[in-house]
Design a protein around this nucleic acid. Structure first.
Lengths: 194, 194
DNA sequence: CGAAAATTTGACATGACTCAACTGGAGTGG
DNA sequence: CCACTCCAGTTGAGTCATGTCAAATTTTCG
């Protein structure tokens, strides 16, 4: 198996808790390695996919399309991040969002059932997911707060500071969507034409 | 101990997973029963309070005050809900929000350390918190989505459907803040004076 | 290289905010 | 238990931040 991928997963896990190499190996064995191409859908809105994905390479976005056919970005993900549709993976309902690749790459796919098995065999794993879910939760709280009390320009400035790498790697129209403003308006902010 | 309180906690826990009476008893023993009065602060922004709270009676809100002295509601809570500041409880940093009582009542306070002890002694408890954190996470995702693609009026309509009881119990100005609109504008929506 | 997508730019439209004045009702102290 | 505050809610006028649309330009990628 690719050592680079192993390192990526072990770094992500060990950032929060201690795991043995055997335990990480176990996760790789339970998971399925999948390649994806730019533009490919990993999850389609409406389908039930009880799987979560650890991104090994490339970039993905989670977004949904509203009644006016406007796309809204929920979340982005690059190598080293977990991404799934929580309604489908966690609760078993239909996915509320699309997950699509913006850059080709690969991921490690783990089913809900296999994850329950892994929880039983790797004591720290459930706590790890509690911690990263809490972090994601705190992140979404912050995003709501920013949407409530910052102007469009302030939100963009805060975003650049928080995610300097992301800014360079994702198309501007998706960043605008993530920040809750129109693509045109973000363009005006960047070029000081407000 | 008050059987009504016991039932409230056991219902909340058993809604998601199986727990024995002894296990629930153990949680009550580790927790501290605290009464609070209308207007009282449970958590002050900036302080470190590694405690989480299960509301037994009354209502609380979590909010913060921005640079323009505007209050923004993050979350509300009534009996049967857990509330804390995640930055302080989970990560040990200073609280980002105030938690204040809108109605007098009481709560069960559990420290972070005691919770770790409870996790070790009640196998299902950690999974329970993973589940409710995931639910809260999904809720915040939905709130972001609504803020991105619904008008103020649509957000209010969706809120009334999702939280019919909350609507009647919390002052309108806080509901407006929760929904990301001014109190005046919500008043106009309700009275069709737009 | 060429088509399709992303970005830029300007003109114009509008949803929601701010401010300010007024009203009503709930909590509190004498 | 009444009167007095005082905060929540209402209403209107005026304003502004941001959206929409459409056309021009640049970039991306098959």
């Amino acid at each position: 198996m690719n050592t680079e991928y192993f390192t990526l997963l072990s770094d992500s896990l060990r950032k929060h808790l201690a795991f043995s190499n055997d335990e990480i190996q176990l996760i790789f064995e339970k998971g399925k390695l999948k390649k994806f191409k730019r533009g490919q859908f990993i999850i389609n809105e409406g389908s039930v996919i009880r799987k979560t994905n650890f991104i090994l390479e490339g970039s993905l976005i989670a977004y949904f399309i509203d009644a006016d056919a406007q796309e809204h970005m929920i979340q982005f993900g690059i190598e080293g991040w977990w991404i799934s549709d929580i309604h489908s993976y966690t609760f078993g309902g239909p996915a509320k969002y699309n997950v699509q690749a913006l850059e080709s790459g690969s991921l490690l796919e783990i089913s809900f059932e296999d994850m329950q098995w892994l929880y039983k065999n790797i004591p720290a794993l459930e706590k790890y997911f509690l911690i990263i879910t809490q972090r994601a939760f705190a992140g979404f709280q912050e995003r709501i707060v920013n949407n409530l009390c910052l102007s469009a320009e302030e939100r963009y400035e805060a975003f650049k500071i928080k995610y300097p790498k992301i800014e360079l790697r994702f198309p501007q129209k998706w960043i605008a969507s993530y920040l809750g403003m129109s693509a045109e308006f973000l363009s005006k902010i960047k070029n000081k034409r407000i």
